[in-house]
Amino acid sequence: MADAEMKVLDEVAISIRKMNKWYGAFHVLRDIDLTVNRGERIVICGPSGSGKSTLIRCINALEEHQKGTIEVDGITLSSDIKNIDRIRREVGMCFQHFNLFPHLTILENCTLAPIWVRKTPKREAEQTAMHFLEKVKIPDQAHKYPGQLSGGQQQRVAIARSLCMKPRIMLFDEPTSALDPEMIKEVLDTMIELAEEGMTMLCVTHEMGFARQVANRVIFMDEGQIVEQNEPEEFFNNPRSERTKLFLSQILGH
C-alpha cells in the first residue's frame, strides 16, 4: 500500500461544530464535533440507528441540521440553496442502493452533472467519464443501461459518476451493504485506490478490513453521539469504551 501518498494535509476540509439534528422530537444527532483534514480517510461505524448515515448526509445537506455549524471547504452550510449547491459540487456521494439513473446509459449517468452543473462541453465530459470508467474498470459497459449491470458494477459506476464532478471530498453511505460478498471486494478495491490517490473520504461502513487497511481514523457512534474515535490499530486492538467493545465483539466475533 502506498502509504507515502496517503498523506494528511494540515488544511481543514470539513469542520462540524456542536451540530444537532432532530427528526420531529427525536434527537438523532447530539453535539457532533468533527474536524476532517484534507486527505483523511475516516470510517464511521456503529449500530443501526446510531445516526452515522444521517451525519454524513448532513454534510452535503441531504438532511438539514437544526443547530450548530457545518463548514465544508470553507463554505458554511446554510439554508441558502446557492450555498448548498456550491458545496454539493465539491462533495461526491455514493449511496447504499447506488441510485443510478435507470433511464440513462452508464456514460450519460456520468456526463449529466458535468454537462449541466459544471457546463463542461459534451465531448470533454465524455472523455472525463471514460477516464473514470476505465479507472473503475468498466469502460466496456459505457453504453449499457444500469439495469443491465451487476450490483458491484453499478456501485463502481456510481463512484465514477461522483468522480466525474471532480469532487474534493467523497462521502460513502454503506456502499457495500447491498452487495453480494463477491462483489464487495471489487467496490472496496476501487475505494482503496481512491484513498491512495489522496481523496478525502468519509465512509459509513461495517467493512472492518477496509477500515484497518485504509482509514487513518475510525469513529464509533451510538445513539447520535460520537462515542469513540481513534487510529484503526488502537481502535480495534484496544477499544476504550464498553459500548465499543461490545459492538466490536459482535461484528468481529465470528
Binding site: L62, D85, V117
Partner: peptide
Amino acid sequence: GQYEAGDSLG
C-alpha cells in the same frame, strides 16, 4: 434515491 442522487450531484 433518485431525488437524492440528483441533489448530491449539485
